[in-house]
Design a binder for these strands. Structure first.
Lengths: 232, 232
DNA sequence: ACGATTTTGTCCACGCGTTCACAAGCTCTT
DNA sequence: AAGAGCTTGTGAACGCGTGGACAAAATCGT
């Protein structure tokens, strides 16, 4: 009866339309479950997991309920079983080849990030437009020239890419990626990038995050001595 | 008349309680306005700005209306004037000293990020626990030993800090930061960090972002040939 | 075997954010 | 000077996400 969640009317149930907010938290649960498993814990309650992840217990249970009924009332969740189910839901039973465009500090940070491997992510290639960087090695892979981007994406059927270039290059890179068949892009460049509807685009802007913090700091310090320009 | 927005009843107006979602978009508008100003554009409509930022025009107008009535009906917004108003609202009329903990690739990427300066952000110090990194230079500043963290934060009255350490060190670093008086933290370490209520904590997890993309890719490819384990 | 205890799964109410639609208000032309 | 044409600012409806509260269900102890 609660089916038809994200379904367009008349098309039939979209089946397992997990809310975006929930999807964003699943990796968090997965990480906590891994820690618990490493510690030898076999079973945990929603309250345990909630404390380990900083999430409200009711919210956590609701999140998990979207995947199915994997818990046991009165007992809790089997750590390994739940871990597998979340990993499967996130698509981590397979390995995803990811291309990273831009071998600056950020691109290098991503390329050398430990822990992608255990989460179904494999760095297929790192590319850069700067000839001085091409040929050097970051992590396990050699830096390729940007000209090979299209070729590499097609040959290896890469569907996920990361843009870690300067802002000026972002849109052009995105266009090449889309044309080559990439359908999910993570953009770190501080620029608005346009992609077709069928391409999933997420963006992370490090500068914006700091500006948000500065806003809160300003409000904090401005609040006590208010009055100025208040009513006007 | 539109005062008393986020006010708790009986306490009096909280004055300018701008929704969090709006605050997160203001830096985006600010960047676009900078681009327009550089291009010599004196005036722009909400539709222009919306296109430049990829935001719905109505949403953009509502966002700006939280700051005040800075537009002119029938005309649009004065680019320089609006730019100044948003910058002021975000606290960019002053400069915020920021401490970066961790001089790995990510910490280095942040330290060398161009464009913090023009957004009221100044890197006060970069610190690392690895003696091999201490003394080297990233951007303009020398890398300091982690032991000096408390001292530096107190001396320079730093209120904003970035954690770019391995996950294991994150909580300990956060504790030192909070004890030293930091009230806003941006955490890049893949770990759940606990801070007191009065401290603002934002987190960015590069691995989680990629896992979310992988989820969507999986759904995309799994959808056509469905049926498997569907109804059960 | 049965009641006490624990914990899940979910209903429901609330609040925030988004978007539409339109009145208010400004400029420009005639 | 008056109307035509824009564009802002906002009221109102809607939908999503959150969290409290509780019934359903499983285990444990006696």
């Amino acid at each position: 009866m609660t089916l038809l969640r994200n379904a367009r009317p008349g098309v039939g149930p979209t089946e397992r339309g997990i809310p975006e907010a929930t999807v964003a938290r699943l990796p968090l649960y997965l990480r906590a479950l891994g820690t618990l498993a490493d510690a030898g814990v076999a079973t945990c309650s929603s309250v345990d997991l909630a404390e380990a992840t900083g999430v409200n217990p009711a919210k956590l249970r609701k999140d998990l309920s979207y995947l199915g009924s994997y818990g046991t009332r009165g007992v809790g969740y089997d750590v390994e079983y739940l871990r597998y189910q979340i990993a499967r839901e996130l698509g981590q039973t397979q390995t995803w080849d990811v291309v990273i465009v831009g071998a600056g500090n950020l691109g290098t940070a991503l390329s050398t990030y430990q822990g992608f491997g255990s989460r179904g992510i494999s760095i297929a290639a790192v590319l850069d437009a700067d000839a001085a960087r091409v040929g050097s090695t970051v992590g396990d892979v050699r830096v390729e020239p940007i000209e090979r981007l299209d070729e590499i994406v097609r040959e290896r059927s890469v569907s996920i890419a990361v843009i870690a270039t300067p802002a000026e290059a972002a849109q052009e890179v995105a266009d090449v990626l889309v044309a080559a068949g990439v359908t999910s892009i993570l953009n770190f460049a501080p620029a608005v990038v346009q992609v077709p509807d069928h391409v999933e685009l997420r963006k992370v802007d490090l500068s914006i995050e700091l500006q948000i913090l500065a806003y809160h700091e300003q409000r904090r310090t401005a609040a006590p001595a208010d009055d100025r320009e208040a009513s006007a």
